[in-house]
Nucleic acid binder design. Structure first.
Length: 271
DNA sequence: AGATGTCCCTGGAAGC
DNA sequence: TGCTTCCAGGGACATC
């Protein structure tokens, strides 16, 4: 379940190594979340300039356009000089003169999408509505607090929506709200400026910590040890329904918001 | 227009 | 033991 920290760690693991490569062939497997959007032959001969990240998308900049990679919920990328024959869940192989970049994605919520450039309609559709990056100055506490005042949905759903800040997935959302002492069901416009500022800091703190641990997560993942690492992360509330809150001992409660599980401490997150 | 619900997909766990 | 059902997740799209 890659969230922003793992996507970033993934990026760092191959961006430098693939820069300067020339694409020989893009081989696609079973259909993914969205179609590639072009004939793979068009990418042959493209030179890879670099790989950046926007939210949970990886942007591979090439001489022939931008290739977007999304890991969905079960995707992982591997880049190596050579790889064994594709398995049943390997749905994209980008073969270059420097190695093969492979998307492994059992649940196929991921995607590889080609955009001629970042102004193209498909790029605008996928990237245009994204909010500020949480770990940059673009994510401003005061602006965040003001924006919350315009939203009536629950704070949990507003954070997940991705237009006020990107990269806060279901797991880190529960964790950040716990850290900030805010109940997930609280209406966003009823979060005071002071509490919004705390939440802003909590989001950064949770993501930065996960990013720092993401390295070990990814190594475990690529070593096929099984878990993706969220369970090594020692979550404060996520996945701990019924277990005692580490701060006050009250059993952690689990509810559903928008078809998704939310975890919180009813005492530490009183409102 | 903003909020909410639905769907895509598959493997693993839980329930019968 | 073997079947069925449920659940996890991000995000586009449909509906209210």
């Amino acid at each position: 379940m890659p969230e922003l920290p793992e996507v970033e760690v993934t990026r760092r693991s191959f961006a430098d190594r693939i820069a300067g490569a020339t694409v020989q062939q893009l081989a696609m497997g079973k259909p993914l979340r969205w179609p590639l959007g072009c004939d793979p032959v068009q990418l042959q001969g493209a030179r890879v300039h670099g790989v950046s990240r926007r939210g949970k998308y990886l942007l591979m900049h090439t001489s022939h356009g931008v290739l977007l990679w999304h890991l969905g919920m079960s995707g992982s990328l591997q880049f190596a000089p050579a790889l064994p024959a594709r398995g049943v869940h390997d749905h994209a192989d980008l073969r270059t003169d420097l190695g093969v970049l492979r998307l492994h994605d059992p649940r196929r919520f991921g995607a590889v999408v080609w955009c001629p450039d970042l102004d193209a309609p498909v790029a605008r559709k996928l990237l245009g509505g994204l909010g500020p990056e949480p770990l940059t100055d673009a994510f401003d506490a005061q602006a965040f607090a003001r924006a919350l005042k315009l939203k009536r949905a629950s704070i949990k759903q507003v954070l997940l929506a991705g237009d006020l800040v990107v990269g806060v997935g279901n797991i880190y959302c529960s964790e950040a709200l716990f850290l900030a002492g805010i109940r997930p069901t609280c209406r966003a416009d009823r979060v005071s400026v002071a509490r919004a500022v705390r939440l802003h800091a909590a989001i950064r703190s949770v993501l930065e910590r996960a990013l720092a641990m993401g390295g070990s997560t990814l190594r475990d993942f690529s070593n096929a040890q099984g878990q993706t690492g969220y369970f090594q992360m020692d979550a404060a509330v996520y996945g701990r329904a019924g277990e005692p809150c580490r701060a006050c001992g009250t059993p952690i409660r689990q509810i559903r918001q928008g078809q998704r599980s939310t975890f919180f401490c009813p005492v530490c997150q009183a409102r």
